[in-house]
Design a protein around this nucleic acid. Structure first.
Lengths: 249, 249
DNA sequence: CGGTAAGTTGACTCCCGTCAACGGTTGTGG
DNA sequence: CCACAACCGTTGACGGGAGTCAACTTACCG
């Protein structure tokens, strides 16, 4: 696959994200960039990137598009347990276990990099800071996962959807995907329902309610939040779990 | 603190658990045992071991008793996001981030070991297999966390409680805390409610229903499951996420 | 013996799921 | 160019699962 300038632009948020977790050396950054560009993949919308039970032998890094981790019950009920946004990596180190316990799918057309285990291991062996940065990302992911449990277990529908929107905004911001008070919301209401543990019908009604009260504007796949503090208040949102700041190395 | 034979017996499940994730050398096992015995702590029931926002500078390993990870909303709603059973470790490597996003509390009187960061780092630096074993535990924890999201988001009350019981049994079994078809259930219905995202009243009614249909026997803090397969069926339980088997090293 | 925590039950309410129908948009093929 | 299907969003009607409030019992403990 030929490299283009736009590919390079896609890689930049990945580096920036990891660099925010652990300051990376110039060499680490460039070797990471090379590895990412080598494994470039693209996928259409609604495709499984990896399925529950598959053996894990590579890691993936999202460059553009939205993906999700999800699990399904025997009878078809689906729960999205997390989103994967541009700049985020999936399952670094997951190959330490034998198989994967959940599936990952694209929710939009997406570009990502698939880095084989051996390649990844040599990458992190050469630079312990890089290894730590990936581990930090994993740890932040557990924290997000915990907050999702709180969201699903203890918030009512309105709070739940509000909280999800707050989190999405805060996760998209550092990768430059927020324009002023708006961002693109490229997924369906069914996806949002599966992420919040609601039925599609009730999710739709909750969105209506949020529109009516002026909490959000959502039209033509664009989400606008005029008063983010108000949204955070109704969500009982507390940002500390996202660890959006750097720890002293 | 003087060492006793019973302390040694408590450490054994920890070693066994980690050894199941990665085969440990004799030296690794004994150095781990020493580190654990050095940091021995005990706590009464209902005590916070670490609170949300605290800086993290040590890891903890549970030797006896039940603990939980939980988060609370401003208005007091509590969600237990995971349990910590004997043999399990909390937050190995969590010090890579700055502060902890949730609290950990004892649900029963407990004995655990508190190993300082420096001690832990020298331990794993000396043996990479040990380091990997701890990472595997962390990865299994994420998988459990994901399954909890599914449980809270997509199962109804009866399925939810049934699933929790299945998981508890499968996690207690490898550390020898299942006697035949029974185990001790040392926590209150409020704890179970907070773990399943239900109100205490509704959890109580769900337990009644499970008792009436013969799915469980729960009396005097003893849980008996006569037909585990039946329980798993009503829970839509799929065990793969617990990774209870060893991967080829 | 009083006080507190845990478990249980009834009554009532309402949030949310289910079922169903309808409109708008997109894309596709005849 | 139009018919048709498929997908998505929306709305109404209805029912039931789960929350809330409150009272009562039992056990335990100082």
């Amino acid at each position: 696959m030929a490299l283009s300038m736009s590919d390079r632009n896609l890689v930049e948020p990945v580096i920036r994200r990891l660099n925010a977790l652990r300051r990376l050396s110039v060499e680490a950054r460039s070797s990471l960039e090379s590895a990412i560009l080598e494994g470039l993949q693209s996928a259409g919308s609604g495709e499984d990137v990896i399925s529950e039970g598959d053996p894990v032998d590579s890691i993936r890094i999202v460059l553009s598009g939205w993906l999700c981790r999800y699990k399904t019950l025997e009878d078809g009920r689906r729960q999205i347990v997390n989103f994967l946004f541009p700049g985020e990596s999936c399952d670094a180190y997951a190959f330490l276990l034998s198989t994967i316990d959940h599936s990952i799918a694209t929710l939009t057309p997406a570009v990502y990099s698939d880095i084989k285990r051996a390649r990844f291991e040599s990458l992190i062996a050469a630079d312990s800071t890089l290894a730590e940065a990936f581990w930090c990302e994993t740890l932040v992911n557990i924290a997000i996962q915990r907050e999702w449990a709180v969201n699903l277990g203890r918030r009512v529908a309105l709070e739940r959807v509000a909280h999800l929107f707050c989190e999405i905004v805060e996760r998209l911001r550092p990768v430059g995907m927020i324009n002023g008070k708006s961002c693109i919301m490229p997924i369906t209401q069914m996806d949002l329902a599966d992420a919040t543990g609601l039925s599609v019908v009730h999710l739709n009604r909750t969105l209506q309610e949020m529109r009516a009260s002026g909490l959000i504007v959502l039209r033509d796949r664009v989400l606008t939040i005029n008063d983010l503090d108000a949204l955070k208040n109704t969500a009982l949102y507390s940002p500390n779990y996202l660890q959006l700041y750097r720890r002293g190395s």
